[in-house]
Amino acid sequence: MTVVVKIGGARAVNPEGALADIAELDEDCVVVHGGSTAVDDTLDAMGTEPEYVETPSGVVGRFTDEETMDVFKMALPGLVNTDLVTGLQNAGVDAVGLSGVDGGLLTGKRKSAVRVVEDGKKKIRRGDHSGTIQDVNADLLDTLLASGYTPVASPPMLAEGTAVNTDADRAAAAVAGALGATLVVLTDVEGVYADPDDPSTRIESVETPAEYDALTDAAEGFMTRKVMAATEALESGAREVVVASANAERPIVTALDAGG
């Protein structure tokens, strides 16, 4: 069995619990991370404001112009990935960092124009660097896993010859789907609750369409994306998806026990 672990990329979040857990897993493991706050921090250090746009249906997302895309490369495959791989090496995991560009790990179509709503006006913004994953190079991951390495992957992806932004939760979902793996999505929040005011109603894992219909209904706010990613993972071939708190002492083992 292979486990795909999605972890946050924020430097502020201490990933040590997760890293120690990965070191003790018996299963093959692929780590996928994001790093949106690292992008914002780096833009800030350069005196640039991050730009977020809202689509007609109300989804807020980053607008990634060319300059922001360069900062994105610096922050994700640069700073966050190198720090995670270093942390894993120190925990005894022979980690190898990959961006979605490496070996065409994450490829698909580019979306350079987006419809946005600004000041109540509908507009078309061009020059966005984002894309949707259509293919995962599972061979590259299998090659590394077979030789005892732990791949640590992150956006960007490769779309029409250009490195572009793509959602890290969806990247993890695509990887889990391609490998037929169990996906463990670690979040800073405690999970998704059938009744958000009742901690005992936490939905710990989804394995059937009926269960994730219930999960989709329960997910609110930013968790919606994690649930959508979970849905994509299951639809594309993942064995199971567990959304779990990163703050547990042994977050991955706990998540796998709960999900298994």
């Binding site: 007609p56 997302g61 419809r115 078309i124 984002s130 949707t132 959602d167 959508m228």
Partner: peptide, 11 residues
Amino acid sequence: TAPELEEDWGE
């Protein structure tokens, strides 16, 4: 004519 652009739920 404004292009049709598929709206995605997140990037």
